[in-house]
Amino acid sequence: MADHVEISHLSKVFPTPKGPLRVVKDFNLRIRQGEFVTLIGHSGCGKSTVLSILAGLSEASAGGIVLAGRELTGPGPDRGVVFQSPNLLPWMTALENVMLGVDQVFYTASREERRQIAEYYLTVVGLGEALHQRPSELSQGMRQRVGIARAFALSPKMLLLDEPFGMLDSLTRFELQQVLLDLWNRTRLTALMVTHDVDEALFLSDRIVMMTNGPEAEVGEILHVPFPRPRRRQELLENPEYYRLREQLIEFLHVRAYTLKGQTPKGPSSTAPVLRAASSVAVAA
């Protein structure tokens, strides 16, 4: 059976004052229907670049993407996108922000049905009481909940999430990871999410794709996360396997992200994501 998403030989070249810069080179990845995949790698390696090509917001310099048997050309509501900042339209209420997409996708449904779809997803993410509030009246975390509801409400063929919890404090991040996981358990949408956080990746995904450093970043290694679903954070943290996988991820980021590209691992700067990840475990435990 063909995979749901096929990313083949994807490359992206940016023109820079110093000449063309090949940020991503020969990026290959296949994702099965209903699979949750995270993309992890050092800052600046090209994760967002890959994601925005998938979203159709940026064009590939070479290579192509096939989604559900069709070659992708340009953006479309068949992919639900959640950005790092939720990108809500400030003049619309939470409900109107979600309706904007729902109206577009379910244009054959009646207005009442469309409204019910939007209300359903907002309620599931815990905003049933805040339907008519504007983004300025919502906390950062609540705004990102709207962002998540907006993406899921499209019933897209694929979800694309670019560090959706990157700007949140760690407690809110845990809450929202749970919200995302709950919603995903109900819908099982094929998802590709970018993150810096190894614990987040282990908690959410079926597979973790580790990207090498750039320029010419590519897929380094892929880690299968074998924990059964539905998952509970507490159970994972009590599982020795969790720490073995975590070690493997950190080892990659620390060493092989560099050595695979013939670079020498850096000292202090390369430990930054590791430290961040370690501190979030402490909070969780």
Binding site: G56, P75, S85, N87, L89, Q104
Partner: peptide, 11 residues
């Protein structure tokens, strides 16, 4: 960002 919302939703 706002324009990207429009593009993603194909308004």
């Amino acid at each position: 960002d706002y324009l990207n919302v429009a593009r993603v939703l194909k308004l």
